[in-house]
Simulated assay, not measured.
Amino acid sequence: METDPSDAPYTSLVAVGDSFTEGMSDRLPDGSYRGWADLLAARMAAHAPGFRYANLAVRGKLIAQIVDEQATTAAAMNADVVTLVGGLNDTLRPKCDMGRVTGLLTEAVERLAPTCRRLVLMRSPGRQGPVLERFRPRMEELFACVDDLAARHGALVVDLYGASVLGDQRLWDVDRLHLTAEGHRRVAEAVWQALGYPPETDWREPLPAAVRPGWAARRTADARFARQHLLPWIGRRLTGRSSGDGLPPKRPELTPYARDVQDVPDS
């Protein structure tokens, strides 16, 4: 059931999760990341004076870390809206106990749902290609759990996985793991609409047709990807490190959020 924010505006938002919610790879000129949650907060703030926002997400976090490091903190904030996206990093690990992953996701939802007016879950987007095909069974098991939890706890589910446009490789950064600025803009619009706000754009609209790069260009891109992103990622897996080790959340407190020019998506 959709909520009409014009009747009772949402006055606060807490975002929980990993790099997807932190905002990688929607990079700002100062080197920080914006992302869909920041864009959403800016738009919600325009409808509610004194709007407050926290973003506890940190890149690389597994679902156990999200439960241990973010869920209790988020629950204590008693925000109107909480977004929770997690577990996908687990599904990409060579060894993944899906029973444990879904159990921890359930624990997070059970902790958060009673403390907020609206809990938002997501079926995460998947970039077209061999990586998606390899891990699709795990992802779909995770999303089946998301659907079940939403039904049991009255949460909203934003189905990004079912939107074919978000599989378009042009909406993914060169690391092939994170959305571009345009991808994040579309996710923000999707959540905006799911919360009951009036549509501003069609976030599912396909991108214009484009000429596919030639063989040489694709091989060059593959080599750059392997050197800059794949090999470091494998190195972290082998040593048990994470890209988020030692990094704090970018907005750890639920504080007033003023719309800034950098929160306006590129046209």
Rank of each mutant, 00 (worst) to 15 (best):
M1L: 08
T3N: 10
D4E: 13
D4T: 12
D7F: 05
T11Y: 00
S12A: 09
L13W: 06
L13M: 10
V14L: 08
G17C: 11
D18A: 15
D18P: 01
S19R: 13
F20K: 00
F20D: 00
L28V: 09
L28S: 09
Y33C: 14
W36R: 01
A37I: 02
D38A: 07
D38K: 01
D38P: 03
L40D: 00
A42L: 05
R43N: 03
M44E: 02
M44V: 12
A45N: 09
A46Q: 14
H47M: 02
H47W: 06
P49T: 02
P49C: 03
F51N: 00
Y53G: 00
N55L: 01
R59S: 14
G60E: 05
L62Q: 06
I63F: 09
Q70M: 11
Q70H: 14
Q70P: 04
A71L: 02
A71C: 15
T73K: 14
A74E: 07
A76E: 12
N78A: 15
D80R: 08
G86E: 08
L88F: 13
D90G: 06
T91N: 06
T91L: 09
L92P: 00
D97I: 14
D97S: 15
M98L: 15
T102S: 10
T102R: 15
G103Y: 11
L104T: 07
T106R: 14
T106M: 02
A108T: 09
L112M: 09
A113R: 03
R117M: 08
M122V: 14
R123F: 05
G126T: 04
G129H: 11
P130Q: 13
V131W: 13
E133P: 03
R134P: 00
F135W: 11
F135C: 05
M139E: 04
E141A: 15
F143C: 01
F143N: 06
C145A: 15
D147M: 08
L149H: 08
A150L: 09
A155F: 07
A155P: 05
Y161F: 12
S164F: 02
G167C: 06
G167T: 13
L171T: 04
D173Q: 07
V174M: 11
R176C: 12
L177N: 03
L179S: 02
T180W: 11
H184D: 01
A188N: 13
A190H: 02
V191C: 09
V191F: 06
A194L: 11
L195P: 00
Y197M: 04
P199Q: 03
D202E: 14
W203H: 13
W203G: 00
R204S: 15
L207N: 12
A209C: 04
T220R: 14
A223S: 07
R224S: 08
R227C: 06
R227S: 13
Q228S: 10
Q228A: 08
W233M: 07
T239F: 08
G240I: 04
D245N: 08
D245F: 06
D245P: 08
G246F: 06
P248E: 05
E253S: 13
A258D: 14
A258E: 15
R259A: 15
D260F: 04
Q262V: 10
P265D: 10
